[in-house]
């Protein structure tokens, strides 16, 4: 398909609209469901629906709905970026995509090594999803990463991967690694094993949540300061919080933007480090050689 053709541009526009539509849906949902309130309040995710389950009721909360909508939006963003790729880079879009993919490939390669190059899509998904989830609060939406359930889910996925790669070097070795260096320390090793996903989930969630809480506190403080300093102005001028314009935005540049992107990077890097260090290459090769020898003798 020609880059300049009308059909190509139409598909582009449709993909862009489909990308923005979920975010608009989330905003509309937010406006419809948030009760009219005075001032600023700090609350957790709103619960939209409760589905009854035998052990525990499943709660459909704002965090889940926002992250689903974000996933749909990112899906169309990827389609838009990957639309009309050609062997020779022609568009800025393709150059951007190639630059991003090269950066990601370098990151995975330098942190995990040659053996784990199949992890590029997974790490990229974690990076992009976590980054944009944190940045969702810039639109005034509830960011899914400031809910512990979301980050705990991601940390559980990473924990499953770590355990899988430890098992790959032999189940007996996995069990034995708990009694290292002496068997008495097994409870300690068990705790440190469990602490990995817990600390990953808490770290991401705590950073994002504290950032958003501090932003809200700063906004409230500036509103109070404005009514204290400029309260003598007549009429609506006195009531309007002038100091709240602009100043909190500068601070939220760190608390929302930098901290969100940094936490995404840290989560991805920790995933890479934990997974690649869980896999003992020498032991894996030795086990495979032993198995091959057994097969030959049979």
């Amino acid at each position: 398909m020609d880059i300049k053709s009308r059909r190509f541009k139409a598909v582009d526009a449709i993909l862009l609209i489909l990308m923005i539509l979920p975010l608009v849906c989330a905003l509309v949902l937010q406006v419809l469901t948030s009760p009219p309130s005075e001032g600023i309040s700090i609350s957790g995710a709103k619960v939209f629906a409760t589905v009854s389950f035998p052990l525990q009721d499943l709660i459909i909360s704002e965090a889940q709905v926002n992250s689903w909508l974000l996933i749909v939006s990112l899906f169309f963003l990827c389609l838009y970026l990957a639309h009309g790729l050609s062997p020779k880079a022609q568009t800025k879009r393709q150059l951007l995509l190639e630059w991003a993919f090269n950066a990601l490939e370098n990151m995975v390669h330098s942190n995990m090594g040659e053996r784990f190059l199949q992890f590029i899509p997974f790490i990229g998904a974690i990076l992009v999803l976590s980054c944009f989830s944190s940045l969702l609060s810039l639109f005034g939406l509830f960011s899914p990463t400031s809910d512990l359930n979301v980050t705990a889910g991601w940390a559980l996925v990473v924990f499953a991967l770590i355990t899988f790669y430890k098992f790959k070097c032999g189940p007996w070795g996995y069990v034995k690694s708990f009694a290292d260096p002496v068997a008495v320390l097994a409870p300690m090793n068990l705790i440190s094993e469990v602490a990995t996903p817990v600390s990953m989930a808490f770290r991401h969630y705590g950073n994002i949540l504290s950032g958003s809480i501090i932003s809200v506190l700063i906004g409230t403080a500036f509103a109070g300061l404005s009514s204290l300093v400029l309260g003598w102005l007549p009429g609506i001028l006195g009531e309007f919080p002038f100091l709240r314009i602009g100043v909190p935005a500068v601070l939220s540049l760190y608390f929302d933007v930098v901290s969100g992107v940094l936490q995404a990077y840290i989560f991805a890097t920790l995933t890479m480090l934990y997974v690649s260090s869980a896999f003992n290459v020498d032991e894996f090769e030795a086990r495979r050689a032993r198995k091959a020898r057994k097969k030959k003798t049979l």
Binding site: G44, F202, R203, G206, N207, L209, S210, L262, I266, T269
Partner: peptide, 26 residues
Amino acid sequence: STMLMGCVIAETTGIYALVIAILLIF
């Protein structure tokens, strides 16, 4: 990058305390 990773690991106890403080308040 190594320093960032080290900072993150060192930060863990602080984050635990922060989560407990947030739970205690809210």
